[in-house]
């Protein structure tokens, strides 16, 4: 084997080790789900909840939609990355209680690659909801 051939084989091996080594160290993705807060907001119509839910979901995730029309059930997904689909999602449920409403947050994330855990996602959403509700 010539010196050049040996060099080529070595470089090829370096490349393969780099490729397979990077895969071997990849942690398995796990589904993380969080039961976020549930709170009652007094003296507010459920339409205020809907508005804040949409705002919060669009601020933290994207493309918030209300399921089935005027249901108070809102859902949104994170932006898909180049290697995966959406790895974060959340639901906000608004339900009227006379002159008040109850709102619940539920979040899910695939960790890794999602930078946020489901709990962190729900905390962000709750904060964004409160900002929108003020």
């Amino acid at each position: 084997m010539t010196r050049i051939s040996r060099c080529r084989v070595t470089l090829l091996a370096v490349g393969l080790i780099a490729a397979f080594g990077s895969l071997a160290t990849r942690a398995p993705a796990a589904l993380d789900m969080n039961v976020g807060v549930s709170k009652v907001v007094q003296n507010q119509p459920v339409s205020a909840c809907d508005s804040s839910a949409k705002t919060a979901l669009n601020a933290v995730l994207q493309n918030a939609v209300e399921l089935g029309g005027d249901t108070g059930e809102w859902i949104a997904f994170g932006a898909p990355d180049s290697a995966n689909g959406s790895t974060a999602a959340a639901a906000i449920n608004c339900y009227p209680l006379g002159g008040a409403y109850v709102v619940t947050f539920t979040c899910a994330a695939q960790v890794p690659p999602s930078a946020d855990s489901a709990a962190a996602l729900c905390t962000k959403l709750s904060a964004a909801f409160d900002s929108g509700a003020r």
């Binding site: 470089l11 490349g15 780099a18 399921l67 859902i75 898909p80 959406s86 639901a91 994330a109």
Partner: peptide, 30 residues
């Protein structure tokens, strides 16, 4: 030399046939 490394990395990654993964969420049943 760099080209050879790139080819090797590409072949290595190609062999990893991981499907695109994503979170599927269902809400709306009340």
């Amino acid at each position: 030399g760099l080209w050879l490394i790139a080819v090797a990395i590409f072949l290595g990654l190609l062999s990893h046939t991981a499907a695109i993964a994503s979170v599927d969420l269902s809400a709306g049943i009340r």
